[in-house]
Nucleic acid binder design. Structure first.
Length: 778
DNA sequence: ATCCATTAGTTTTTT
DNA sequence: ACTAATGGAT
């Protein structure tokens, strides 16, 4: 019966079979954490625990789905079905649907995403007549979000002189009032933002003992995955729910805590033993995922962090290849290297593109990769996870706003999106008037529109008719929604509102792609209804909307199953593994990010991020950095990331070609990327940190490659003597290839000085002065 | 109310 | 470099 236990090593088995009481599983990267969690749940069920009494909180909904499936194979699918698994947000959203009425929320409350929240904050700031330069809506929202994550309600804020003082010092004395208004407006709109889903759950559990008792009794065994990334609000929920039975099992790895920026508190995992009594500790230290070189390389870096729990990750696996480090001139060369390397591996090792991932610090780094992969020379299929997610596109949000509105007409942000989309002659001044009236009568805008006669609102007859038509339309949709499933409603709404017809009319490529996206949304809704029906679950529109609001980008399913290279941020890659991993953009100020180098703890988080990235790899990891990169539209010099040299050199291999291998082919090309700034070429090794330097930057050696000597040593009027730039803006210059042109602007200095020149023959070009064959004419 | 030109933010990560 | 938001003109 317990045969599945044979698939576990000793420490894994201990963690699986230990039944009651608080326990923490400290699970190193690749140590079979998911396996332990799934087996543990299956084991509990085999030992007689009802699936109904188990709550398992995961980091993504995808993880929950997969885990449920795996448990189903052990204990039977029908049993596994009763398990409650999901993210904090989705689990407690569902509880709030049935219990939120205690707090005055309707069961059909809508969920505001960050964009909705920012828009609401902006309108509040505007209404209050505050300076939007001082009260930046995103910053204000960030502050409110951190209040909520720490369970500081408006009342608690006003009772805390320190917070008030801090906001005064920051020239934002009205913070409390904005916070108050924001909470009121969300409440009135029957909506919750992401933080509310946790904060309101806490309020529910602390203010309504009967509700608390009900869920304490229901969730007799609670498991929390990725515990290192829980915030204070989540900690308190778990603490409250597990208080009666104390059967709380948390799993995590402090070395992989990477969400402090959104309130995650690494102290939750570090202090677990203090927060619960009689904690049993389990450690999973054997890595099954990666080669020894990768494990040791990762260990040697994470060692530099001071804040961490005591553990030693090791592996029985082969040494494998060393971690390869590649330097390129530019981000395009970096992308080309990655493309070539992937194609080589596909050919030589017969791997599939789906065995490969490219990881990066920021979403903007995908551009170069995409350009190169799409180029006919390479033609590599790829899929990007994250970035501007599908559900954040304007046309999708607009379409969804209609659906949100007919579920919950009080949803103010949804209403504002669609009241004049497609254009129906209800402009911003009308909306402003309605908004003022709504605040005055303490009603939602929709309620005001439905009762225009009962207000003293000053609108002319034409506008009133338009508003009435709009309200009638929404109410009409609402009635349709009562008898139709999610897809039928959405299809009906799209047709009635003529959203697609409108977009087709403009005929631009953007319009076409928007239409396609809306079609895709309809397909997704169709799929959703079919799948839910098959599973015998809720296929209503309301449920689809909740799914859409809380879906992570990993949840999206592949359109076709042809193998593709996966592109994603390192954050998104947590928990995933790939045979071949390319980490790109390993440069100071990019990774570690320039925003995260001010404090030790920020830098340590960046280092953990690097640790996460490296430990995704099973067979082979490549670390790439470029010497120049476009950032904010400008070409900037880059230094290799400190993380590269923090790896013990026993485990790495520098594979950038020797300088003599550089070919002098494209130097006179007008394409900046084709040219090699010869005095910037860095040589592999001697990378040493200067200990006295406050911001330690790896030092690199400069040396001119021999085959470029001619160019550098032959100062002719054409090239090198312009190096220190005698060119000034306004000069008329002559280029060997482009002819005469006027210098429009200069940027950068020394080796990287570039000029923007308008040539009579080819228009405006940006040239690196040290290569451009320029002669100053006047 | 709508259109077009200018401006601001973006590139740190996301439920 | 690119996009979305803003603001003035019509």
């Amino acid at each position: 019966m317990d045969k599945y236990l044979d698939n576990l090593n000793e420490s894994q088995r201990e963690a699986v079979v230990h039944k009651d009481g608080p326990m923490i599983i400290i699970a190193g990267a690749g140590s079979g954490k998911t396996r332990v969690l799934t087996y543990r749940i299956a084991h509990l069920m085999n030992k007689g625990v009802d699936a109904f009494n188990i709550l398992s909180l995961t980091f993504t909904n995808k993880a929950a789905r997969e885990m449920k499936e795996r448990i189903g194979t052990v204990v039977g699918t029908s049993e596994a079905k009763n398990l409650w698994m999901g993210t904090f947000h989705s689990v407690f959203a569902r509880i709030l649907r049935s219990e939120g009425h205690h707090l005055g929320f309707p069961s059909n409350f809508t969920i505001y995403d960050s964009q909705d929240s920012v828009r609401l904050i902006s309108s509040i700031i505007k209404e209050m007549g505050l300076d939007k330069e001082i009260y930046k809506s995103k910053q204000v929202l960030g502050r409110i979000s951190s209040f909520k994550n720490s369970l500081i309600t408006v009342k608690a804020y006003y009772n805390n002189p320190d917070l008030i003082e801090a906001d005064k010092m920051a020239q934002r004395p009205k913070m409390g009032e904005i916070y108050q208004r924001y909470v009121d407006r969300c409440f009135k709109a029957g909506s919750m933002d992401f933080d509310d889903l946790l904060l309101r759950t806490n309020q529910l559990l602390s203010q309504y003992p009967a509700v608390l008792a009900k869920y304490q009794d229901r969730f007799r065994y609670i498991l929390v995955d990725e515990y290192q990334d829980t915030n204070h609000s989540q900690y308190l929920i778990v603490k409250a729910l597990s208080d009666r039975f104390q059967n709380i099992c948390v799993v995590g790895d402090d070395s992989q805590s990477i969400y402090a920026f959104r309130g995650a508190n690494i102290q939750n995992i570090l202090n677990f033993q203090k927060n619960y009594d009689n904690v049993k500790i389990f450690k999973l230290e054997q890595n099954y995922r990666s080669s020894n070189n990768i494990v040791e390389a990762a260990n040697s870096v994470i060692e530099k962090n001071k804040t961490k729990l005591d553990k030693e990750v090791w592996t029985d696996n082969n040494d494998g290849e060393r971690v390869k480090i590649m330097r390129t001139i530019t981000e395009v060369k970096e992308a080309e290297f990655v493309a070539n390397s992937i194609l080589d591996h596909v050919k030589e090792n017969e791997i599939s593109l789906s065995d490969v991932a490219i990881l990066y610090r920021t979403n903007s780094q995908t551009r170069a990769i995409e350009d190169v992969f799409r180029h006919r020379n390479y033609n590599i299929d790829y899929v990007i996870y994250g970035g501007l997610s599908f559900y954040q596109r304007k046309e999708i949000k607009d379409t969804l706003a209609y659906l949100r509105l007919l579920i919950n007409p009080n949803d103010e942000e949804a209403l504002k999106r669609v009241i004049n989309y497609p254009l129906r002659g209800i402009g911003s001044s009308t909306v402003d008037k309605l908004s003022v009236a709504a605040n005055h009568y303490n009603k939602s805008i929709f309620e005001i529109i439905c009762n225009l006669g009962a207000t003293d609102i000053n609108l002319n007859a034409g506008v009133k008719t338009k508003l009435n038509n709009f309200a009638t339309m929404i109410q009409h949709f609402k009635i349709e929604a009562e008898t139709k499933n999610a897809f039928e409603v959405a299809d009906f709404v799209v047709k009635q509102t003529r959203i697609i017809k409108d977009l087709e009319k403009d005929g631009t490529p953007e319009g076409v792609s928007k239409v396609e996206n809306i079609q895709e949304l309809l397909n997704a809704i169709k799929n959703f209804t079919v799948e839910q029906k098959e599973k015998g679950e809720d296929d209503s529109l309301a449920f689809f909307l909740e799914d859409a609001a809380l879906a992570s980008d990993l949840d999206k399913e592949a359109k076709d199953d042809s193998p593709k290279v996966s592109l994603m941020t390192i954050h998104m890659s947590k928990g995933l593994e790939y045979s071949y991993v390319y980490i790109i953009g390993l440069e100071e100020n990019l990774f570690p990010s320039a925003m995260s180098m001010n404090t030790r703890s920020e830098l340590e988080e960046e280092r953990r991020l690097f640790y996460v990235a490296l430990t995704r790899a099973e067979k082979q990891a490549y670390l790439c950095y470029a010497q120049m990169r476009y950032r904010w539209g400008k070409l900037v010099d880059c230094e290799p990331s400190r993380f590269i040299q923090e790896i013990d050199e026993k485990f790495v291999e520098h594979i950038a070609p020797q300088v003599t291998e550089f070919k002098q082919t494209k130097f006179l090309n007008d394409d900046i990327f084709g040219s090699v700034p010869q005095n910037k070429i860095r040589f592999k090794k001697p990378i040493q940190r200067t200990p006295t330097n406050k911001k330690p930057v790896p030092k690199v050696e400069f040396q001119a490659p021999k085959n470029l000597k001619k160019v550098t040593s032959k100062p002719t009027t054409a090239s090198a003597n312009l190096f220190d730039s005698k060119v000034t803006v306004g000069n008329i210059v002559e280029h060997t290839k482009f002819g005469k042109g006027e210098v429009l602007s200069l940027e950068g200095s020394a080796a990287n000085q570039k000029a923007e020149i308008r040539f009579a023959s080819v228009g405006v070009k940006k040239l690196l002065l040290q290569f451009a064959k320029l002669k100053i004419i006047s």
